[in-house]
Design a protein around this nucleic acid. Structure first.
Lengths: 229, 229
DNA sequence: CGTGCCCTTGACCGAAATCAAGGTGGGTGG
DNA sequence: CCACCCACCTTGATTTCGGTCAAGGGCACG
């Protein structure tokens, strides 16, 4: 319940709240963990809870009737998980890695929003951020080649998971939060193509991979060259 | 200045405003027209104005450094055009058809937002709607075949341009708001593939086309079958 | 009557999908 | 402890869908 030390308090939506409101909300919040693969929001799981993502990665995906799948977004701490005002979300949110969450009931969040317009303001900002990201990714899906897609993906992960990589940092290191199949579903490719592109980047010396998960990028600018934009 | 009869007053963001606020805003608003191809927001055009789209279609697009283009969204009346709180929008908004707009200065909108939280609430809802649409389209871009993409596009246009088509309506009629090249940029295809898919749908009897622009769908359910979801 | 833009159609090509074998590593049960 | 299994990944051969290249048609406009 120590909101003061919580990341969502500083960079997330909870920053909108006054100390009293935080106390109220904290009393109604539940910190809990979910493990890789757990469904957080979906057709099955009704949307009665909203959460702040405190650690780990959440994947948002959609599935066509014949089983084809597309991951439409990734969320990182301290993102807000859950679709406000949703009729039905045709979207599934799953833990991509083990995650820590801080959850609230729908009612609690909506009461807070009513008395604290700044909360809605922060939600608007997060939603705009996600919209920008979604549109950027549409360019990747619609107009980039397989190798450009792969490079774009690695850069995206690097900037989110290696705290130092977003600056003018030269190198980056991180664990891939997704399996090959999920990467394929995110990039609109097959698992084989993902695998081939990774080995291509590896044999070119642009990345190194250890244990199939751990990636080292020695020169981010070379990777940026591959990404196409 | 007759906000009372304006569509944005009823279904758009202006519905958030009190009569007095409407009067204030109306005094600062400018109704104007733009013709096909005009750039409304972009790297060139600074973002000092926000607009309500009163009629016509606006296309939002992004361009890679080598010229590849992707249309990342279409807007229809009474959508709100312009990115609030934007640093720089890497996005270009262009009139896809001739359009009517009702524009406000950035300052006016921000003042309104400060005193009228409901305005921000409506913006949040529109943004969430656009986010949902963007994510739906990501599935189309990443996982659908050329013919499924074409069918999805026609359905999308039909539901937005033929007022009757969204219900359980059986047929639809509309003018394509985009040239073949723009359709290609929206679907992540080439102009030739778009052309071929259209003739395929035409020869199958699923659609009829007059004057290269006017489309008649006699049986929407057949088209839906083609769309894949 | 030319000229240019937009669209269509055909022939060919190539990037990524599909199909098909392995390889690797971690976990389990004998 | 070892053998087996299973999930995940890689690699190769072949196919296919959509891209590229090329030609020509229709129509508006000067």
């Amino acid at each position: 319940m120590l909101c003061v030390s919580c990341e969502a308090r500083h960079r997330g939506v909870c920053g909108a709240l006054t100390p009293e409101q935080l106390t109220t909300l904290a009393a109604q919040s539940i910190k809990h963990k979910a493990t890789e693969g757990d469904e957080l929001v979906g057709d099955a799981v009704q949307i009665h809870r909203y959460s702040n993502l405190l650690s780990g990665v959440v994947k948002l995906s959609k599935t066509l009737s014949d089983g084809r799948q597309q991951i439409v977004g990734l969320q990182f701490a301290p993102d807000f998980v859950g679709r406000p005002f949703s009729k039905e979300s045709t979207l599934t949110a799953q833990a991509a890695t083990d995650v820590d969450l801080c959850s609230f009931s729908r009612g609690a969040v909506e009461r807070m929003m009513a008395q604290q317009p700044d909360l809605e303001h922060r939600l608007l900002r997060q939603t705009l951020k996600e919209l920008d990201q979604a549109r950027d990714w549409m360019v990747t899906l619609g107009r980039k080649t397989a190798s450009e897609k792969m490079a774009s993906f690695l850069l995206m992960i690097a900037t989110n998971l290696d705290p130092a990589a977003d600056a003018t940092q030269r190198s980056a290191t991180f664990d891939l939060p997704l399996l090959r199949g999920d990467i394929a579903d995110f990039l609109g490719l097959t698992i084989e193509t993902v695998s081939r592109q990774l080995t291509r980047l590896r044999t070119t010396g642009i990345i190194r991979i250890e244990n199939n998960r751990h990636v080292i990028v020695d020169d981010l600018s070379r990777l940026r060259t591959c990404a196409g934009d």
